[in-house]
Lab assay of single mutants.
Amino acid sequence: MSGNGNAAATAEENSPKMRVIRVGTRKSQLARIQTDSVVATLKASYPGLQFEIIAMSTTGDKILDTALSKIGEKSLFTKELEHALEKNEVDLVVHSLKDLPTVLPPGFTIGAICKRENPHDAVVFHPKFVGKTLETLPEKSVVGTSSLRRAAQLQRKFPHLEFRSIRGNLNTRLRKLDEQQEFSAIILATAGLQRMGWHNRVGQILHPEECMYAVGQGALGVEVRAKDQDILDLVGVLHDPETLLRCIAERAFLRHLEGGCSVPVAVHTAMKDGQLYLTGGVWSLDGSDSIQETMQATIHVPAQHEDGPEDDPQLVGITARNIPRGPQLAAQNLGISLANLLLSKGAKNILDVARQLNDAH
């Protein structure tokens, strides 16, 4: 009898209710805020589980004197976190989706994509230029951005401005803007500013005609071990179906173009009346040469937790077992079709030249 009692006690200790789920994140304040929001949602869904947040620095956090596009290494903000995932030191990792490459290392998958916040870019102005827009900034004003995508589009749109690289986390960039006289304004992701509670610093939100956004911008991705079915089931509740389908289309477009950090590629997606609209573009580094096109596809946005595919093969690095396969494939095909259209119009040449120029500098 006593033996059975011990077995029952052991089973209770090993039951999922007692389990601590370890969540990996970057150390920056924004990353911690984003991770806290994901953990809060998981806690609400699984009140019996405990969650421990483990923060670590990544290569991208450490190399702050070089433009991201020049470092010449993929997975700048993800490699150390993936290493911890691989060694079973954490069970899942919360990322900004735009930091996750469209091809993940073997053994990993994006197990959830959370509801997207505003994906557009924002302009934050130096205190002396508050009330201005990019259009009304004085001639030769210097605007800071760490992104080739932003610089290429904005140089084309605002030729009277000069664009220079600015690195560091959000706090560091804002301090550089406010305390030094080098920059009249800087460009940042609206979602990051909003998550930090800095709505009052948003001086201008850039519309798609001015600057399309990065693939996955404004959404959070939760990376897990691809074979860890328990954790895949656990994080599945975080999937937002519309965000998922938009981001599958965007990531398929980028992957098929073979774009990345070192080339200016941008997108804009919208879901309306059962249609998914995808606009994508590529630019030369100075913005003088560009190709942009829009395509659409009829896609039914499923309700969360309709029964999805059981075999769960990944699409552009994403596993969404609780979302039907048909809409996911339709979104992926839309991204591939748009990429093929741009490639047929000469996108590869623009991107190759951009890559060579970026590598040469």
Rank of each mutant, 00 (worst) to 15 (best):
173 R>M: 01
43 K>T: 13
236 G>A: 13
84 A>W: 06
349 N>S: 06
240 D>R: 01
231 I>E: 02
128 K>W: 11
352 D>S: 10
186 I>G: 06
264 P>L: 01
62 K>R: 08
108 F>K: 02
248 I>Y: 01
58 T>I: 08
230 D>K: 09
256 H>L: 09
190 T>A: 13
273 D>A: 04
178 D>S: 09
193 L>N: 06
106 P>D: 11
210 E>H: 00
96 S>L: 01
338 L>Y: 00
138 P>C: 10
340 N>P: 02
312 D>A: 11
243 T>G: 11
203 G>F: 00
180 Q>V: 09
108 F>L: 14
317 G>M: 15
267 V>G: 06
256 H>R: 12
174 L>M: 14
359 D>Y: 13
308 G>M: 04
249 A>H: 01
300 H>R: 05
93 V>W: 02
338 L>F: 02
263 V>A: 15
121 D>L: 03
200 N>S: 09
88 N>A: 10
42 L>M: 08
244 L>I: 02
158 F>D: 09
69 S>A: 07
352 D>P: 14
177 L>P: 01
144 G>C: 08
195 R>N: 02
213 Y>C: 07
167 R>W: 07
234 L>Y: 01
83 H>Y: 14
163 F>L: 14
194 Q>R: 14
348 K>G: 13
155 Q>V: 10
206 L>W: 05
262 S>M: 00
344 S>V: 06
194 Q>C: 03
220 L>T: 11
347 A>C: 03
180 Q>K: 12
102 T>Y: 15
240 D>N: 15
175 R>P: 02
186 I>Y: 03
356 Q>C: 00
81 L>R: 01
311 D>V: 11
235 V>I: 03
40 A>I: 08
147 S>T: 05
199 H>K: 14
68 L>I: 12
246 R>H: 05
330 A>M: 00
47 P>Y: 06
330 A>V: 15
91 D>W: 01
71 I>M: 14
133 T>D: 13
353 V>H: 15
190 T>S: 03
47 P>N: 13
112 A>D: 02
141 S>E: 09
187 I>C: 06
317 G>C: 14
228 D>Q: 15
289 D>S: 08
102 T>Q: 06
130 V>M: 09
343 L>Q: 07
203 G>I: 03
331 A>N: 00
42 L>C: 08
194 Q>E: 06
179 E>D: 06
103 V>Q: 15
299 I>E: 11
146 S>F: 10
230 D>L: 03
142 V>D: 09
246 R>L: 10
351 L>N: 01
298 T>Q: 08
260 G>A: 05
132 K>S: 12
348 K>D: 11
81 L>G: 08
205 I>G: 12
43 K>W: 08
150 R>V: 06
303 A>V: 06
249 A>T: 15
325 R>S: 09
127 P>A: 11
85 L>D: 02
303 A>E: 10
229 Q>P: 07
114 C>Y: 07
238 L>G: 01
332 Q>G: 08
66 T>D: 05
151 A>M: 04
123 V>H: 03
54 I>V: 10
87 K>A: 12
341 L>V: 10
145 T>F: 10
319 T>H: 15
284 S>R: 15
351 L>S: 07
285 L>E: 04
185 A>D: 07
145 T>M: 07
205 I>M: 09
360 A>Q: 02
286 D>P: 08
92 L>A: 10
45 S>T: 13
233 D>H: 13
113 I>Y: 02
100 L>S: 05
180 Q>F: 03
141 S>Y: 08
216 G>A: 03
297 A>L: 04
134 L>N: 01
277 Y>Q: 01
197 G>R: 10
318 I>M: 07
214 A>Q: 01
246 R>G: 10
353 V>P: 07
104 L>I: 12
294 T>V: 11
338 L>A: 15
51 F>N: 05
